[in-house]
Design a protein around this nucleic acid. Structure first.
Length: 824
DNA sequence: AGCACGCCGACT
DNA sequence: GTCGGCGTGCTC
């Protein structure tokens, strides 16, 4: 009889332009389902994990489909709506669905093969015709198998493929594909009684037989099993193998014999996850303001899917979120709480865990692949009404919730919600809103300083808006003081980088056993060295930026490509030894504080001091315990930290961020400064915030001083309207990279020419960005402004196609083009 | 992403 | 010459 042959369109986690079609072996016709994972060969020898998107009986035309190698799941690994969501994201953010899948699935669920080379012929030494390198490879394979990269490292060359190929052909080695799946769900072995022996009669016969064959151990074992399984009470429950074996006189051999006689069966059962205790806890009561706001949010959800909660720092948004989460869980749905990555490693987690206990799952890059895969599988297998709340970074919008009811996006304005590189360059907040809109999920955006776009959506009634005012628990807003750096320069009283007012406040704070946080948005010691004679500046050899001096390691580092060099003894142009340092970073501030306040414990917190994951935690807890009195850091010190004894906060150079050439720089600076200021004086007393500046009269600083978000919004939205920026238009940024500056320029001009035909867009550029060369590639940027048009999707595909057309041209084919939709 | 193929400089 | 770097194109 003729059997149907099935073909599967398989989505692979790669930047492939389309899905690939594979053939399904007949014996798997029944188990090949949409949404299950399969292992497929791709190219010469690699195996990848893919997901079946569609099944068809139609053989593809023009090529012979390869067979799928294995089916990994008996049930779909994704919920039905997920691939649809992926495709939407791929289209919106101009990338392939494979790239979205790659970002969505935790690593542990993406098995792939690794080619390992194994020695086949022990007597290779006899052969005199082997080259030195071949001998070296065979020698190392004598002890253990290796991967291609192992061998490349061993030989110190890159092209090892020909050598290996030669050895395979000559029969000295062979390769094997080892499929590496990193996710191993914890399983336990459970023992059950075979149906045959469920009656007392059958059992007594069995016992007699065992006695006859002197299988004493076996009958002991069986007896104990029956006891544990509650046989006497007429029950026949399964018993954990471990529980059985931990009793004296029970040995594995006896158990094995019983299994062989088919008296009992041993089955692998997925170990119990810390089962979500379905009890949904009570929460501390809300203040009157919070309760009013909570009711307002709920009311708003009746007419809006998305609501913005605008509440200043420590106005108690978290408690409100918790109540909302609780109500969602009570209604039988699940909740997702999105936070910027960095805020996830802090106190908030312990707070939520305290409230919700085992219902909470945390999901971000700090967790192992196995743990993340476990969370994924747990959500997938959870009952529709199982109460679960996931606390996660941006990638948790991809989790397979069965019955999601609420998404909270805290610190909605945070730029880290947007993935920068690699594709998909998605914004988790926007993606959450899209995911929610298709399924009736409610989204709550929370921020003390909402992004201009979000606030605009709220004022346009597209989103609901709830204002939460008043600091929670009677904490006073900090006093903000502008410290004029020029004044200290004139009087020559600048201490290191500290102005007199900041210095004095710090002195007082330390005397009163209070703590200080200093913020400088730049790491290293000094970002710029300059020859005092000729003006020469040490630059990165691969990028067009000056090298930053790091004193601790006594090195010059490029913050763009990571290039490291030794600091020059003298100017390489004029030979003069007179080099001066301009500008300052966190390292310099740390040194200043150490010099100015001997005896005060200072700690720096930036990328350089938190390379290992644990060090971040350690610094936080040392600061919390009071072991450290002064914390000097970059952005890191601004996120999600609450400390009780911070009397003084210093922002060391407000001007740099305000002068950054970007249409969002005022908004950003305002958000950043408000956030840093919020670290001051959490309880008991009013904290002081010093903003050091060369321009104390700047309008933005005045607004920061009064914390006037409304005024900032009014100002910014007018500018955005006037100059044509979001939310009034949509932005797409195209970056072209080429090793030749002129080619990059010409290619971008060609792209402009291609795009000129679109009537609904305006083009800005091409122009070299702020840093015009990174890693030896010259950059050009093109900003596309798209008017609000219903043809957005078509415009985007036109842009993607235009990019491809440019790349197809002979002269520009090795030009790299990246498209960033809604760039930040 | 990884791997093969093909082109070209700098070594035996 | 040929080894090995590097760019380019394809993968069902």
């Amino acid at each position: 009889m003729e059997r149907t042959t099935l073909f599967a369109e398989v989505l692979l986690p790669l930047a492939l332009p389309k899905v690939l079609t594979y053939r399904i072996p007949h014996e798997w016709n029944e188990s090949a389902l949409q949404g299950v994972r399969v292992i497929v060969p791709l190219g010469k020898s690699k195996m990848y994990t893919g997901i079946i998107r569609h099944l068809s009986t139609q053989a593809p035309v023009g090529y012979n489909a390869k067979y799928i190698e294995a089916i990994l799941d008996s049930e779909p690994i994704v919920t039905a709506d997920q691939p649809v969501f992926w495709e939407w994201l791929a289209q919106y953010y101009c990338c392939s669905s494979g790239e979205v899948m790659n970002a969505a699935l935790p690593g542990g669920l993406k098995l792939s093969s690794e080619t390992r080379f194994v020695l086949a012929e022990e007597d290779w030494r006899e052969n005199a015709e082997l080259s030195e390198r071949e001998r070296e490879v065979l020698e190392s394979l004598g002890t253990k198998s290796s991967t291609v990269s192992d061998i490349a490292a061993l030989l110190g060359i890159r092209t090892v493929q020909p050598i290996l190929k030669g050895l395979v052909e000559k029969g000295y080695i062979f390769s094997e594909e080892e499929i590496r799946g990193r996710y191993k769900p914890k399983t336990e072995e459970w023992v059950t009684l075979n149906e045959m022996y469920s009656s007392s009669e059958a059992l007594s016969i069995l016992f007699k037989q065992l006695e006859k064959s002197r299988a004493r151990k076996q009958s002991d074992c069986l007896l104990l099993f029956l006891q544990l399984s509650g046989f006497d009470e007429g029950k026949n429950t399964a018993v954990r193998k471990l529980d059985l074996l931990k009793n004296d006189g029970i040995n594995p051999a006896a158990l094995k014999a019983l299994v062989e006689k088919q008296v009992i069966c041993i089955t692998q059962v997925q170990a119990d996850q810390p089962v979500a205790s379905s009890a949904i806890p009570e929460l501390p009561e809300l203040s009157e303001d919070q309760l009013t706001a909570l009711n307002a949010v709920k009311e708003s959800f009746e007419t809006h899917d998305v609501t913005l909660l605008h509440g200043i720092t420590s106005s108690g948004k978290t408690e409100l979120y918790c109540h909302l989460i609780r109500e969602t869980l009570l209604s039988g749905k699940q909740a997702l709480f999105l936070l910027p990555e960095i805020a996830l490693t802090t106190q908030l987690i312990s707070r939520l865990k305290k409230y919700f206990g085992s219902i909470v799952r945390v999901y971000h890059s700090g967790f192992s692949e196995n743990q993340r895969s476990a969370t994924w599988m747990e959500l997938l297998r959870a009952g529709d009404h199982e109460p679960i709340v996931v606390l996660g970074a941006r990638s948790s919008i991809f989790l397979p919730f069965r019955n999601l009811g609420l998404i909270i996006v805290d610190e909605e304005h945070e730029p880290s919600f947007k993935q920068h590189d690699p594709a998909p360059r998605y914004h988790a907040r926007d993606a959450a809103i899209v995911r929610a809109s298709k399924t009736g999920i409610k989204v709550l955006l929370g921020s003390a300083t909402p992004s201009i776009e979000t606030y605009w959506n709220a004022t346009q009634k597209r989103y609901g808006l709830v204002e939460l005012s008043g600091r929670f628990g009677g904490i006073a807003t900090p006093e903000i003081i502008l410290a004029d750096i020029r004044e200290d320069l004139r009087k020559k009283t600048l201490r290191g980088q500290l102005t007199t007012p900041l210095f004095e406040a710090m002195t007082e704070a330390f005397a009163e056993k209070q703590q200080v946080i200093l913020f400088q948005n730049r790491r290293g010691y000094s970002p710029l060295w300059q020859c005092n004679t000729c003006g020469w500046v040490p630059m990165c050899t691969r990028c067009d930026v000056s090298m930053t001096y790091h004193k601790a390691s006594h090195q010059l580092k490029c913050h763009y490509c990571g290039y490291v060099a030794n600091p020059p003894e003298a100017c390489t142009v004029c030979g003069n030894h007179d080099l001066k340092m301009l500008g300052f970073g966190t390292e310099k501030i740390e040194e200043d504080v150490r010099n100015l306040f001997p005896g005060v414990q200072v700690q720096r917190m930036d990328l350089d001091t938190t390379r290992q994951k644990s060090s971040y935690q350690r610094i936080i807890s040392d600061f919390e315990s009071g072991e450290i009195q002064a914390l000097v850091g970059t952005q890191m010190v601004t996120k999600g930290l609450d400390f009780d004894h911070v009397a003084v906060v210093g922002i060391l150079n407000a001007d740099r961020m305000m002068n950054y050439p970007d249409f969002r720089s005022m908004e950003r600076s305002f958000q950043l400064m408000m956030q840093v200021a919020g670290r001051a004086g959490r309880r008991q007393r009013r904290g002081k915030v010093f903003i050091q500046t060369y321009a104390p009269g700047h309008w933005l600083l005045e607004l920061v001083k009064t914390g006037d978000y409304q005024a900032l919004y009014e100002h910014e939205i007018r500018e955005r309207y006037h100059f044509g920026y979001p939310p009034f238009i949509r932005l797409i940024r195209i970056t072209l990279k080429h090793k030749d500056d002129a080619v990059a320029q010409r290619a971008s001009e060609e792209l402009v020419a291609q795009l000129q035909v679109l009537s609904s867009i305006q083009l800005l550029g091409p122009e070299p960005p702020y840093v015009p060369r990174i890693n030896n590639l010259y950059l050009r940027q093109l900003l596309i402004k798209i008017n609000r048009t219903p043809e957005l999707a078509r415009t985007k595909s036109f842009i993607v196609e235009a990019g491809r057309k440019v790349q197809r041209l002979e002269a520009y084919k090795n030009c790299r083009i990246t498209i960033d939709v809604d760039p930040l």
